[in-house]
Amino acid sequence: MRLNRVALYGLLIVAAFMLMAPVLIMISTSLKPMSEIRGGSIFALPTDPTFAAWGKAWFGDCTQAVGDVCQGLSSSFMTSVRIVIPALILSVGLGSVTGYALAAWRVPGANLLFAALLVGMFIPPQVTLYPLIILVRELGLFGSISGLVLVHVIWGVAFTTMMFRNFFKTVPQDLLKAARIDGAGFWPLFWYVMLPLSLPILGVAMILQFTYIWNDFLLGLTFGGRSGQPMTVALNNLVGSQFGEKEYNVDMAATMLTALPTLAVYLLSGRLFVRGIAAGAVKG
């Protein structure tokens, strides 16, 4: 029995180490100067930690600037922020209202629409990519933040709707009836009764949508153009196209910077993320 416990903890610690190792390697590499990286093992801790690579990743390296490309990730960080905030609010807002209308009101064809949305969640974005490009271009939004916000809302609404619809379906029918008799119409019922009830699910939806939108690559790559590059796209460019010797410490610092916002949200939200991920797992 005692031996079993030891083995149990041993396995867990090994697993934890293996899962954490890449993250630790990323952090440790980002703190090393290039000489140390060339000379030593990736497992070695930095002997002389420096944030130089972080600075270079964030502000850019103007000594190697070609034309006006003297920017690090800072500008794309701002782009990502400007995409994620409106896209988050709009997709969660629209999803909550849609989910509520589907769950709490008698609308002909509601189940059909829900089924269509559910299937839509699984459609690979590649399948509708080109028509979406044309739509965004026709609206004059191609390469702009607004265009990216729009496509994120389009792609996110199926997921947020599903979360809210499934939650609102669990609200007892009697409660809805009571509110109807009390004279609450569509919006008062939503605002005074349903939305306060759904605060936990609202938090979950916000966290997951934030993670999805921040982590998106394909939509940013396709619709961002030069001016609307989100951080993931900028990171990929930075890693993929360096002149001269590859600076792995800068790459890792840039990677860490890109991962930091979602990592922070994950660590701060704790159980909410875990709870939501099971409910919202269907979105890959």
């Binding site: 007892p172 009697d174 008799i181 009390d182 005074y192």
Partner: peptide, 17 residues
């Protein structure tokens, strides 16, 4: 509509907000 009928209702599950 229910609220136009001048009625009130009490439910088995109480249905309090």
């Amino acid at each position: 509509e229910p609220d136009e009928r001048d009625i009130a209702m009490v439910f088995q599950s109480y249905a309090l907000y």
